[in-house]
């Protein structure tokens, strides 16, 4: 979904590529991250110094696991898109720019999936 306004699309305004979708994606993930990061920071602060069993019991709750999955997806989506913007602004050489963005996206996928798998393991391991 590009979320460009119909008038903008008809007039051919704005980015000819995926700029509008990128812009919205960054804002929607930012909006989602406001409650998610506040919840996570508060949870981690409360569990500060707590042992393995406390953290495991916390992560075994489906509600917590669901929120953690949302947090991970939003963090890596937002982080990858944000870094891409910075790279596009400051890296002039096309080859370096392309490679850097690819590396950021690959790292985000690998790290994000590792996080998702960890949350699922914590949720389902008896």
């Amino acid at each position: 979904m590009s979320r460009r306004s119909p008038l903008g699309r008809v007039r051919g305004l704005g980015s000819a590529k995926e700029g509008a979708g990128h812009w919205w994606g960054l804002r929607f993930s930012a909006l989602a991250l406001i409650p998610l990061t506040l919840w996570f920071a508060a949870s981690v602060a409360v569990m500060s110094g707590a042992g393995y069993e406390t953290v495991r019991a916390w992560a075994a709750s489906p509600l917590v696991a669901g929120l953690l999955l949302l947090l991970i997806v939003a963090v890596f989506y937002h982080g990858a898109r944000g870094l891409q913007e910075v790279i596009e602004d400051y890296v002039p050489r096309k080859s370096v720019k392309f490679t850097a963005i690819l590396a950021v996206q690959a790292a985000s996928i690998v790290l994000g999936l590792t996080g998702v798998l960890s949350v699922l393991l914590l949720l389902f391991r008896v």
Binding site: Y52, L68, T114, G115, S118
Partner: peptide, 13 residues
């Protein structure tokens, strides 16, 4: 910093 987040979750798992 996301490395720390993932490391912490993976270690717990």
């Amino acid at each position: 910093g996301t490395l720390l987040l993932v490391y912490w979750l993976a270690a717990a798992a």
